[in-house]
């Protein structure tokens, strides 16, 4: 009995492959609110499908590394990556290209935030962070890990392990805020948009936690597309896709990312990110 089930599962899976091969699939994780991912991004899929005239499907993922794996295995042909994950993904898939970025992503930045109980002095415009406890966001985040680590190491002249008493990875920007607010960690690094939105919505008690430093700007999130899409979906597909992404003006769709609009981008825009990742040893 059970064996027949397995067999039928095998057969079913064969059928589903045929169904999938003609579908253009993408994935995206927003840097802020991850609730109702599918409901929100299926709307984006509908928009793309309408404009591109192919079937478009959205696959929800949990982490940048899962997004990279899906992109590498061609399970998705298009992905909304963070700065670092984009660089990693394009390194693994030769010929893949960054085609569009958010308007805000041209000059993204990170904040360092601190609990009110610590009185941090600045030296040469950079806070002296020695011997405090510190939390990054998720391990693979550009604004919550990569860039803050780079700026801290550059300004204080030693690796973060030697600067902080304790280092954590909260896993998420909003978590970083609530942990520094509660004093679980004294200092933390956070994506500026997530912080600004939380302050605006009154989700953070600014008498308990405040921004102590603002980073220089760097490029962040972008749409990266697979090399083979022109073959699979017709000549000029990549160009058309770029135009459709840039042409996305519906506030409701853009709010899912959340970005005010998309503008063209290219791989070389992300060279600074790649250099930084190599400097701190996150990629070889």
């Amino acid at each position: 009995m059970k064996r027949t089930h397995l067999l039928s599962a095998g057969l079913l899976s064969l059928f589903s492959t045929f169904a999938l091969s003609a579908t253009f699939t993408f994935t995206a994780i927003p840097d802020a609110d991850e609730s109702n991912l599918r409901t929100r991004f299926e709307k984006v899929a509908d928009y793309l499908s309408e404009q591109l005239d192919v079937e478009v499907k959205y696959i929800p993922v949990k982490s940048y590394s899962a997004a990279i794996t899906a992109f590498r295995n061609n399970q998705v042909q298009l992905a909304w990556f963070g700065g670092l994950s984009g660089v990693q993904a394009r390194g693994l898939v030769p010929g893949s290209e960054a085609i569009a970025q958010g308007f805000e992503d041209q000059y993204f930045k990170s904040y360092l935030i601190a609990n009110h109980s610590v009185d941090i002095k600045s030296f040469d415009d950079f806070p002296v962070l020695n011997n405090y406890t510190f939390t990054f966001g998720s391990k693979g985040s550009t604004s919550g890990r990569l860039m803050p680590q780079f700026f801290i190491e550059k300004n204080l002249g030693k690796p973060v392990e030697q600067i902080f008493k304790r280092i954590g990875f909260s896993g998420d920007h909003s978590r970083t805020i609530s942990q520094v607010e509660a004093g679980v960690y004294q200092v933390g690094a956070v994506n500026y948009k997530v912080w600004d939105t939380a302050v605006e919505k009154g989700q953070v008690d600014t008498s308990k936690v405040k921004v102590i430093w603002e980073s220089p700007t760097y490029p962040d999130y972008q749409w990266t597309v697979h090399s083979g899409v022109d073959n699979d979906f017709g000549a000029g597909f990549k160009e058309k896709l770029t135009q459709v992404l840039i042409g996305m003006t519906d506030k409701d769709l853009l709010a899912s990312f959340p970005r005010s609009s998309f503008i063209p981008a290219k791989n070389s825009d992300y060279q600074p990110i790649e250099r930084v990742a190599k400097t701190i040893g996150m990629i070889d």
């Binding site: 609110d33 991850e34 609730s35 929800p60 949990k62 909003s174 978590r175 609530s178």
Partner: peptide, 20 residues
């Protein structure tokens, strides 16, 4: 679900991590 399977953990982890 914590790493992306479509089970309860998928939503459970996000909800707690993001304070919902």
């Amino acid at each position: 679900g914590f790493i992306g399977m479509p089970t309860l953990g998928f939503y459970l982890e996000s909800a707690f991590r993001q304070g919902h």
